[in-house]
Write a protein that binds this DNA or RNA. Structure first.
Length: 219
DNA sequence: GACCAGGCACATC
DNA sequence: GATGTGCATGGT
């Protein structure tokens, strides 16, 4: 599996889907909120929760910091796991305010590796959430690997079943130019491909990767 | 009514 | 370090 294969996959998907304009959010703070709300959750449910937060004027660091946790939980209820996600939002916002004064520009001024470690120290922020914040809120070249990435690469035998998150991320980061726009669109393309063609229960339709990679196997 | 969705922390071995 | 479990709603 060399560098050319990953670029071939990117070009095939990019030709098929076109520019996807990710992350779907109104500003970087909304991205941060969305990364927590979407943990193991369908995006349609996240949209409902974000709309509810907007309607309550709760889409700012100050508002979330000042909001009672149980009240917050009630508002984000449509996103599921709402008690734990309310706690996670509060801890992320606390970190954001204490370390960077609630300013994305100050957070984004930090070095990628150090910022990633700092984000990972926040309870409720794991590797994927950290990488989404780095890439889509801070515009740092940190590749996001997720369930779709694993399933797509796994089905086409490009990674081992037991590959870790870090190994998958390193695969992309070792073989691609470290460009924010490329990482942004690539992850978006993989999610789009996953949603349309590579769910646990495969959807009908012709996968755009057909003929480019080894035939998909069930996974 | 079962199955699934853009994870994570924590317990246990 | 690997594996198992709880967390929960809404769409198919």
């Amino acid at each position: 599996m060399g560098p050319e294969a990953l670029l071939d996959v990117y070009e095939r998907l990019n030709d098929h889907f076109g520019p996807l304009h990710w992350w779907p959010a109104d500003g970087p703070f909304e991205v941060m909120v969305g990364t927590v709300l979407t943990q193991n959750t369908a995006w349609t449910n996240v949209e409902k929760a974000i709309a509810a937060l907007k309607a309550r004027g709760l889409l700012s660091p100050e508002a979330i910091a000042g909001c009672d946790e149980e009240t917050l939980a009630g508002v984000i209820r449509p996103a599921g796991f709402y008690h734990i996600k309310a706690r996670r939002l509060k801890s992320l916002v606390r970190f954001f305010q204490e370390e960077y004064g609630g300013e994305v520009a100050r957070m984004a001024a930090e070095n990628l590796t150090e910022l990633r470690d700092a984000l990972l120290s926040v309870s409720g922020v794991g590797e994927e959430t950290a990488d989404c914040i780095l890439l889509y809120a801070c515009e740092k070249p940190s590749f996001v690997s997720d369930a779709y990435t694993r399933r797509i690469l796994g089905r086409h035998r490009l990674i081992a079943q037991e590959a870790t998150y870090g190994q998958i991320r390193n695969l992309f980061m070792a073989h691609l130019p470290q460009e924010v726009a490329l990482f942004n669109q690539y992850h978006a393309l993989l999610v789009n491909l996953g949603k349309h063609f590579c769910r646990k229960t495969p959807r009908c339709g012709i996968c755009p990767l057909q003929g480019l990679l080894p035939a998909a196997v069930p996974m």
